[in-house]
Design a protein around this nucleic acid. Structure first.
Length: 924
RNA sequence: GCCGGGAUGGUGGAAUAGGUAGACACGCAAGACUUAAAAUCUUGUGGCCAGAUCGGCCGUGCGGGUUCGAUUCCCGCUCCUGGUACCA
């Protein structure tokens, strides 16, 4: 073989890897493990684009590096194969989503295999596979059968809760439950009917059925997330969306809120992602206070983090949605207040949030009594108060809260300062100040005052200390077809689990993938969607699980993918443990990552696994954006003007397929062939070339900027693609895709090949011992690669390979002692060419079985250093001096230098700074 | 609005316990090889000034500061980008 023939080499080695099962992994207690995981893809109909493999290549490089370092590596891939697009397609075509999903998966798999990943394909999983979702359903059943015990601070079986109820009722018992849970004694519990008992237990179960307000889209027959709603209409299709109360399954993730926050501390994730999770969970510590309403039996509950400012309260504000607000309005205020409420309610939540500057509100006419000093305070309705957070009511302290301040200023309400400080710049939080004008709180610090207030409230029974979370329980049902059925049937209107032996509850066939005529989910169309027990036949749940169900535990299933007895064998989950490196997009920062952590903690509580955090280290790769190209058509003609001349004509820009543009130059023939109407296009060129305009946009079919990895592989090979994606820039950075630099990477691989084929393309290596310089170049490269691997700085590693190969080329080195380690170094990045070279070097085994070369500092030791000599901070001379010189000797040498003397103009320097091995700086 | 991240040549980017800014590539220019083109190789390439020589000045988004020395640290801005919660 003369030339570097990537096609032949890549196919050959992919075949060998497959046949020999090179990347099969198995538990091996003698060997340290490394679990390297990618966020598994949803197999969409569009296939893989060049953005997908970015993270996979990075994790593949780390995996192969760890193999060379002697680790037992688990590096699996699978598919998150339940999802809306397949269902949408099914609605349009009537084709079963399983069929299109299967097609998409085979396309993805083929594309992934072309890139030469070190995946253990035997471990492939699909969340829509009944053997997989059997265990998703099983985990759901465990959640249903558990409650969260606050004393034990963990999930415990619901049976032990029942035992406690039988002994002591629930009044003294600390467990996470719904706000509206009634309290009862042991005797009462025993007297309840079985149905009543079941009803009560639903208040405690970790997954439960409850009435929730949701975004209901009648036209789509489904509930939408806030994200999917834009200005009151569905993002998809633009149908109207209404707020509607519905019975929905929820997951009591709030029970784990505190542990989810605390757990973050031990994780090696980027700070921004951790911060996002903390903000999402949104813990605030404060107090709940009950205000009596003057001349009414009504009470208003507020939540505040600053109960110490209670003497500064000058009004209460209620959310417009509040039922209480409507009730409290006096006749005198009725007209204005009710109009305001109506207006505020009509504004969508999004509108209200984005429009911060407009201050609006209305006085109800009613007054509340401050329980601390008996003062009467006006009650207002204000749309800056959100119904969904806390109690939907706020005690306003204008002096120490900016929003309250703006509101009070706008409506001329009293502003009363209760913390030392200056009000010159409006309100201030004054968290460190001393309390003033506050009865017996005066003189205390914030902390002291808060404690004293809470004691007072609890003593009087009109409030308590409270921890409030922003995060709400996660809704767990979707009114859709293509998802996991819930293993639940209904008897007397109450939910019960099916028996474990009947798992999986397989998704039934339906005639259409649409809601039924009376608005029930698609499963309402299934025949015999019922469950039979000894006592009779009952209807099964019609909703399915949300997309995040299957992805919340898949990292465990990879450890034991075909286990029929359990979701994964404990010995295996114990061996593989937590994911050592997880790579994926930051768009999952609050959804997937939070749910996975929640389920892992739960599985830990019930003893199913031994870890309570699933992902030790996490890297978020930046999205690869598209880079669109444009041509400029003279309006009303079929003539196209090159970029530099476009302004001399009246032109309009038109997207052009980036695949017929190279280095921003248009291929004229391909352009004419691109579309029928362009066959007779004419061009006005610059220097005989057509230059296209370019812009960075999201990758999308309609912008003709989607680049498919297959095309790159066809043209340059998988190794070039892998190297190039890494060379593009730091992994975590967002960057546009362009192929402008890909030739350089391809050239580099050919240079690498030529090192081993020095003459006439014939393979030849010399067994002569390497020179000092050659060894130095080698060990410099080894060191750099290890450092970069620790920092996940893949782009700089590619550079250092280029430098190394350039050095060897100019040294004319083809010595085995250098070229063997070189092949190993590069093998994680460009595995195919490395395998080929390795086998040419005479090795019978795969290069993945080699060991990483050992770095030896001795080869890098220098005897001399070229000192930059700076005079007044400017580089004026360079001095090559031995590193053994002392500071005094360096100074002497520097001052003796002719160039230096010229700049000193005979004067002695005022100051001399010498950092040995770094720099000489003279100040004149 | 708030919370992150960022801004370096024509382009992607390199260099931060403060120490020679622009590594490595792309692009461009000139040259070699060739009937020619492609490919390949060699050389040059931040800007400005300069007898285009010796060399000098300016330069890491903008304005200040600390320092012998700042892309790096501090203060104040501008713009881009991701997230989001008017969270009491």
């Amino acid at each position: 073989m003369a030339e570097y023939n990537f096609r032949e080499i890549e196919q050959k080695w992919q075949q060998i890897w497959k046949e020999k099962g090179i990347f099969k992994s198995a538990v091996d207690p003698k060997c340290p493990k490394f679990y390297s995981l990618d966020m598994f893809p949803y197999p969409s109909g569009a296939g893989l684009h060049v953005g997908h493999p970015l993270g996979y290549i990075a994790s593949d490089i780390v995996s192969r590096f760890k193999l060379l370092k002697g680790f037992n590596v688990l590096h699996p891939m699978g598919y998150d194969s339940f999802g809306l697009p397949a269902e949408q397609y099914a609605i349009q075509t009537g084709q079963h989503p399983a069929v299109t999903t299967e097609q998409n998966i085979s396309r993805y798999t083929e594309q992934l295999k072309n890139i030469g990943f070190a995946f253990d394909w035997d471990r492939e999983i699909r969340t829509s596979d009944p053997d997989y979702y059997k265990w998703t359903q099983w985990i759901f059943m465990q959640l249903f059968s558990s409650y969260y015990d606050l004393d034990a601070d963990k999930a415990l079986p619901i049976s032990s809760l029942v035992a406690r109820f039988e002994q002591e009722g629930n009044a003294q018992f600390k467990a996470v439950c719904d706000e509206d849970t009634p309290s009862f004694t042991a005797t009462q519990w025993k007297d309840f009917s079985s149905n009543e008992q079941q009803q009560l237990l639903l208040h405690y179960r970790l997954t439960f059925l409850a009435e929730t307000t949701v975004n209901w889209c009648g036209a789509l027959g489904t509930v939408l997330s806030n994200d999917e709603v834009k200005d009151g209409f569905s993002e998809r299709g633009g149908h109207p969306v209404e707020r509607k109360k519905m019975m929905q399954w929820s997951m009591r993730i709030t029970a784990y809120a505190d542990r989810l926050i605390k757990g973050l501390d031990q994780l090696a994730w980027s700070e921004p992602i951790k911060e996002m999770q903390r903000n999402w969970i949104g813990k605030s510590i404060g107090a709940e206070i009950v205000f009596a309403v003057k001349g009414s039996h009504q009470k208003i509950q507020v939540f505040t983090t600053r109960v110490d400012t209670i003497y500064g309260v000058t009004y209460l504000a209620l959310a417009p949605e509040s039922d209480l607000a409507a009730e409290l309005i006096t006749d005198a205020q009725r007209a204005t207040a009710e109009t305001y409420i109506q207006q505020a309610k009509n504004r969508s939540e999004r509108e209200r949030m984005s429009d911060v500057k407009t201050i609006s509100g209305a006085f109800t006419g009613a007054y509340a009594i401050n329980p601390f000093n008996g003062e009467e305070i006006p009650i207002w309705v204000a749309d800056y108060v959100l119904a969904g957070y806390g109690t939907g009511a706020v005690m306003a302290v204008p002096a120490h809260d900016e929003r309250d301040y703006n509101f009070a200023t706008h409506f001329g309400l009293e502003i009363r300062q209760v913390i030392e400080g200056s009000m010159e710049n409006g309100s201030f939080p004054g968290k460190g100040g001393i309390i003033i004008n506050s009865g017996n709180l005066t003189g205390l610090t914030m902390k002291e005052a808060i404690n004293q207030c809470i004691d007072f409230l609890e003593e009087k029974g009109i409030g308590r200390g409270k921890v409030q979370y922003r995060m709400r329980d996660a809704i767990f049902t979707r009114q859709r077809y293509w998802g996991e059925p819930l293993p639940v049937y209904f008897k007397d209107g109450l939910p019960y689990l099916i028996e474990e032996k009947d798992l999986p509850l397989v998704l039934p066939g339906v005639d259409k993938y649409l809601p039924t005529e009376d608005g029930a989910p698609p499963l309402g169309r299934a025949k015999d969607w019922t469950y039979t027990t000894e006592s009779g036949t009952y209807p099964l749940e019609l909703s399915t699980m949300p997309g995040w169900a299957g992805s919340s535990w898949y990292f465990f299933r990879y450890m034991d993918p075909s286990n029929m007895q359990s979701f994964a064998d404990k010995d295996k989950t114990d061996y593989w443990g937590a994911v050592d490196l997880y790579i994926g997009g930051s768009e999952h920062a609050t959804g997937h990552l939070l749910y996975s952590r929640f389920w892992t903690k739960f599985l830990y509580d019930i003893g199913a696994v031994s870890i309570d955090e699933p992902f030790k280290k996490m890297i978020n790769q930046g999205m690869i954006q598209g880079r669109s190209n444009f041509v400029y058509r003279i309006k009303g003609s079929n003539t196209f003007v090159s970029l530099g001349l476009k302004d001399t004509y009246d032109t309009s820009a038109m997207h052009v397929d980036v695949n017929i543009v190279h280095n921003d130059q248009l291929n004229l023939e391909k352009f004419k062939a691109w579309r029928l109407d362009l066959a007779n296009a004419e061009f006005i060129l610059e220097d005989g070339k057509y230059h296209c305009g370019a812009e960075v946009e999201k990758m999308s079919k309609s912008k003709y900027n989607v680049v498919n990895p297959d095309d790159i592989i066809e043209r340059y090979g998988a190794d070039t693609l892998r190297l190039y994606e890494m060379f593009l820039g730091p992994l975590e950075q967002f960057k546009p895709w362009n192929t402008n630099g890909i030739d350089g990477v391809y050239k580099f691989l050919r240079k690498l090949w030529n090192l081993y084929h020095p003459q006439n393309g014939a393979f030849a290596v010399s067994d002569a011992p390497p020179s000092k310089e050659e060894l130095k170049a080698l060990h410099k490269a080894i060191k750099k690669m290890e450092e970069d691997m620790a920092n996940f700085s893949f782009n700089t590693s590619v550079s250092s390979f280029m430098i190394f190969v350039n050095e060897l080329t100019s040294l004319g080195c083809n010595k085995r002692e250098v070229l063997e380690p070189l092949a190993i170094l590069i093998s994680p990045y460009a595995p195919h060419i490395a395998e080929e070279l390795w086998s040419l070097l005479g090795h019978g085994e795969s290069i993945t079985k080699a060991s990483f070369p050992k770095f030896q500092e001795a080869h890098l030791v220098e005897s001399n250093f070229e000192y930059p000599v700076m005079i007044n901070g400017k580089l004026r001379a360079k001095l090559d001096l031995p590193l053994t010189l002392t500071v005094q000797e360096i100074e002497k040498a520097a001052l003796a230098d002719a160039q230096v003397q010229k700049w000193l103009e005979g004067k002695a320097p005022k100051k001399v700074i010498i950092v040995p091995g770094k720099i000489v700086n003279l100040v004149v």
